[in-house]
Nucleic acid binder design. Structure first.
Lengths: 138, 138
DNA sequence: TACAAGGTTGTAATTATTACAAAATGCAAA
DNA sequence: TTTGCATTTTGTAATAATTACAACCTTGTA
């Protein structure tokens, strides 16, 4: 589902409880960051952003929270860096574009599912990564 | 380019020299393995396969050779495992399917380029990964 | 035959991530 | 309000894949 850009603490609390996740301060802040800053961050990027305002935050909390959210279907793991995991709060079917100049990752809101071919295998999941020069850099 | 299944030592030598790579024994054996066994191996998989017949082979050689080949455009790096790099000797435009049951990786010979949408960004490269149950497992 | 350039090897370092145990927190029952 | 328990967070240590690097080998050439 696609979401409004910002969801405030109370709404995030409700949402987490709905998903069976107890709404700790850290989890709320991490979720808030993801809805506010749609930058498909890695765990490390998120940690570096939040550590300024949450000096006791640990990397382990960031990793475990992101994995928890992903396992509950609230986040998608994306692998547009090759080996590094980045996270996308938008779990709808869409593709990703990464600018090889500025490094920014953009969503491309076309369903890959409809475009891609039928095969002799049973396809359950699809990931499409596009690379090139973004509209801002060219 | 797509290749015949097996290219023998002399042909591999020629090919490596053409690409500006000196044809050492290790490089020939690694290239031979890739053309003979089209299993999209990781560095580790390749190392484990070859160490039986080449007892002094080191992991470092496998990694550096695969990176050399990839940088010369003779191999494609594929990221269908998330965290692990695998290599494909077929550098033509095509997609990859991974069976989540048996782990095998298949080529899907459709050009993603033609199927995928135009965007406001300049797309130079595309990677498509499909996941599901393969024809053998279902 | 000796030398230089380049290739291979093994070990150590690095990076991203997970495992784990101790400390902190929140909540419910007494 | 305190006690106790379950859960969460934290920090450190471990792991996995990969790269850096220096020493050792090979090979071709003068």
């Amino acid at each position: 589902m696609k979401r409004e850009n910002r969801i405030y603490a109370e709404e995030i609390k409700k949402l987490l409880i709905e998903k069976g996740i107890s709404p700790s301060y850290q989890r709320i802040r991490i979720f808030d960051f993801l809805t506010t800053n749609r930058i498909h961050p890695s765990a490390e990027m998120l940690y570096l952003q939040l550590i300024g305002e949450m000096p006791t935050l640990s990397r382990t909390t960031v990793y475990s929270t992101l994995n928890l959210f992903a396992d509950k279907g609230m986040l998608k793991r994306i692998f547009i860096e090759g080996t590094l995991v980045r996270f996308d709060i938008d779990t709808s079917d869409h593709m990703h574009f990464k600018c090889t100049k500025c490094g920014e990752v953009f969503d491309i809101f076309k369903s890959a599912k409809k475009l891609l071919p039928k095969t002799e295998h049973k396809v359950i999941n699809e990931e499409v990564y596009l690379y090139g020069i973004c509209k801002n850099c060219k």
